[in-house]
Amino acid sequence: MVTQVPSNSAPIRAENLTRRFGDFIAVSGVSLRVEKGEVFGLLGPNGSGKTTIIKMLTGLLPPSGGNAWVDGLDVRTHSEAVRERIGYMSQRFSLYDDLTVAENMQFYGRIYGLPAERLRKRIEAIVALNGLEPYLGRLAGKLSGGWKQRLALSCAMLHEPKIMFLDEPTAGIDPVARRQLWDLIFDLSGQGITFFVTTHYMDEAERCSHVAYIYYSKLIADGTPEALKALPDVNPPGTRRVEITAPEVTRALRMVREMDFIRSATIFGQSIHALVDDRFDVDDLKAQLAQSGIIVSEIRPLQPSLEDVFVALTYKHKAELEAVNA
C-alpha cells in the first residue's frame, strides 16, 4: 500500500526540480509549493519549460534531479498512485472526434474504473456544471473550440481528482469561451480542488491566486499577484508608474521616450504606460507635448500590471546572466 506523507504536505511541492535532455537543460532547480484550493498559474515564454515541469509532476517524465511530491506522494516512486489522484489536461489534449460528448466522458470514466452508477451520477453532476447538456449526443469533433476545452476539462476530472494540471487550457479559444472556462475553474477551486495551470495570457494570470514566472528553465518569480507587483525589482526606489492619455499615441510615445525623467514607456491601448523617476513633473511633460500640438487629456498614477512585473524581472535576469557570462 502507498504511504502518504501526513500533515502539512501541500498538494503540490517541488524541490530543486531539474530536467536535462542530453546537454540541454529544460528545467533548472525549480522549487515551488502550491497550497490546497489555490489556482496556481505558471507563465513563461515558449520553450521555457512549463510543459516539462507538468510532465514531471504528473509522473510522465522522470526528473533528472530534485524531488517533487503530489498529494504527498513522491512522483519518482509513486507515479502510478499519483496518476489516480490527479486530472491532467495536456497541452495537446484532444478528444475522440468520432465519439459523442457523452461517449468521450464515459470512456474516461471507465478507464478510471468508475462503476456504472457512479459514472452516471458524475456525468450528471459535471454536465450541470459545464452546461454541456444540450450537446451530449453531438460528435466531439463537431464542437466549437471553447466547448471542446470544457469537455476536455470535464473528461480530465470525471474521477474526482483533488488536483488538476491544465497545460494551456485556453490556447486558441475566443475571449468569451476563455472567461467561461476560467469561471468553471474558479467554481471548482471553490470546492477545494487545487489547480496548476499554464498560460500565456496576462489577464488569466491576474485572476490566479498564485503565479510563477519561468524564464529559460529557471523560476524567476513566485508569489501572489499583489506580492509580485510590490517587488522592489518591479518598483525601483524613486520611481513610479503613470498612465498618460493623449491623442496620436504613437507620436506622443516617441516624444515621451526622449524625456530625461522617463525610464521606460510603452503603448497600452489608447494610452502610454510609463515608468518615471522623481524628477517627473506633470506640467513639464504636458508643456513639452503641447509644443508639438499634442494635448494630454489625462495623467494618473498606475499600479504595475503582471506584465510589467514579468518584463521587469526578465530584464533584470537577462542583465544578471550577461554579467555572469562576461
Partner: peptide, 13 residues
C-alpha cells in the same frame, strides 16, 4: 498523432 495516447498514459490504464 492526435495526442490522445499521451492522455491515456496519465490514466491508470
Amino acid at each position: 498523432e492526435k495526442g490522445t495516447l499521451e492522455q491515456l498514459f496519465v490514466t491508470p490504464v
